[in-house]
């Protein structure tokens, strides 16, 4: 089944086509969300939202790019929005704790300082350190780096997803690599000192 058939089938409200879309692109969407959120449950929740958004706004999809590129774009935006909202919830939680109340829920996207990783097992500690270094990058650098390193997308594909020029993507990834390395290095330097 081609992409065009898939889109036309969904637009004509045929259930099986939408099911096919979900099954075909689930690994792509789920893994993209997970690359940003590092939490399976959150990634699944956001994936559901991505497919709902895709279903509801498929009529707006211009066939200038591939369907996968469009889905990547929705997945990235939804994941970033989730992280932003989670930060707001974190502030509310800290206010609750400040006024003596118990936090109502534990946030799964906890963002401790780079120094707090010492208690984790070696590889987990390193992975957590890497994730936090990536999470501290500016938005565009983080998106470009995540899509390149974790999602293994080519620079051309990243440029399509982010709607940027190839040169901009190259620059973003280069700066992201430098910044991530600096952050990790400074963490280990502090540990040694």
């Amino acid at each position: 089944m081609t992409e065009t058939q898939l889109i036309e089938g969904i637009l004509s409200k045929q259930e099986k086509y939408f099911e096919e879309l979900v099954n075909r692109f689930q690994p792509l969407v789920l893994n993209t969300c997970n690359s940003f959120l590092h939490n399976r449950t959150d990634a699944e929740d956001i994936s559901q939202e991505v497919f709902i958004e895709a279903f509801l706004s498929l009529h707006k999809f211009k066939k200038e790019s591939k369907l996968s590129t469009w889905l990547y774009r929705i997945a990235v935006n939804k994941s970033l929005n989730f992280i932003r909202d989670n930060k707001k919830r974190k502030i509310i939680r800290s206010i609750e704790v400040f006024f003596g109340g118990e936090p109502k829920h534990k946030l799964q996207l906890a963002d401790p300082g780079l120094e707090d990783a010492g208690d984790l097992a070696d590889e987990e500690e390193k992975m957590a350190l890497l994730h936090r270094a990536v999470a501290s990058l500016p938005k565009n650098q983080r998106v470009a780096f995540t899509l390149s390193k974790f999602e293994k997308l080519s620079y051309v594909e990243i440029a399509d997803v982010m709607e940027l020029s190839l040169a901009s993507v190259e620059g973003l990834i280069h700066r992201a690599k430098r910044n991530v390395t600096k952050k990790i290095l400074s963490h280990y330097q502090k540990k040694i000192a």
């Binding site: 979900v22 689930q26 690994p27 699944e44 974790f150």
Partner: peptide, 17 residues
């Protein structure tokens, strides 16, 4: 630590999604 960036964490699809 940096080499871990090349290690991809693959999430298994959920059949009930």
């Amino acid at each position: 630590t940096l080499i871990l960036a090349d290690k991809r964490e693959l999430v298994q699809p959920n059949p009930f999604l």
